[in-house]
């Protein structure tokens, strides 16, 4: 009963947040709705016993990505002019009817493709696999990361280092040359 309630709440939070991200016309608000959606996804992870994933989702997204996004919005927001450098009027930054129309068409196409792929699963609900009770996953994930997936683990650590240095180099203010 607990798990069902948690699942329903999380699903509502996830979907509500995602839909609000689509319809919000304010970028700051969209970012807050995105945070709500991430929390919902963490709840969904918790419902299927993925406790470590849920905590990682909270740490990485709520603590890292969303604050980064908010910083970027704050550092860049507020100075939108609607004329581009050729003197033509630009499309509004948060989209207008035309962009939503094309986005809708693309979404319908994509959903048709994805539904075709997952149709078998949705039709056939009688999964043959035995669904076990939720067990702690931390130790098993640690063992797997240090044995079977060690190469991917190391590569991702190198990638993170690269991202760290790359982000610092890219966003560093360049000194004006005097010549």
């Amino acid at each position: 009963m607990f798990t069902n309630t948690l699942f329903l709440l999380s699903a509502a939070l996830t979907l509500g947040g995602a839909i609000a991200v689509v319809y919000s016309q304010n970028l700051m608000h969209a970012c807050i709705y995105l945070l709500a959606s991430f929390f919902g996804v963490a709840g969904l992870y918790a419902c299927i016993g993925a406790d470590f994933l849920a905590a990682t989702q909270l740490v990485v997204y709520a603590g890292g990505v969303v604050i980064l996004m908010l910083f970027a919005i704050m550092l860049t927001g507020g100075t939108g002019n609607n004329i581009n450098r050729y003197g033509l009027e630009k499309i509004a930054a948060m989209g207008n009817k035309k962009t939503y129309f094309f986005a809708g068409i693309t979404a319908i196409l994509a959903s048709l493709i994805v539904l075709k792929i997952i149709a078998n699963v949705l039709k056939d609900q009688s999964t043959t696999a035995v669904i076990t009770a939720n067990a702690p996953t931390v130790e098993r994930i640690g063992t797997l990361l240090a044995t079977d997936h060690i190469l991917a683990f190391e590569i991702s650590s190198v990638m993170l280092l690269g991202a760290l240095i790359g982000a610092a180099v890219i966003s560093r203010p360049r000194k004006e040359r005097h010549d």
Binding site: T3, N4, F7, A11, T14, L15, A18, I19, V21, V22, L27, A30, S37, V41, L44, C47, I48, M69, A72, I73, T76, K90, I91, A92, A93, M94, G95, T99, Y100, F102, A103, G104, T106, A107, A110, S111, V114, L115, I118, V121, L122, Q125, T127
Partner: peptide
């Protein structure tokens, strides 16, 4: 709580993401 509902939620999230990506003209969005 079954596979179908999870796939449905993930599908809806995916479609929302596609909509946001194409409809918005702001890079952060």
């Amino acid at each position: 709580i079954n596979l179908g509902s999870y796939l449905g939620i993930s599908f809806a999230l995916f479609i929302c993401g596609i909509l946001v990506m194409i409809a918005r003209k702001n890079i952060i969005a």
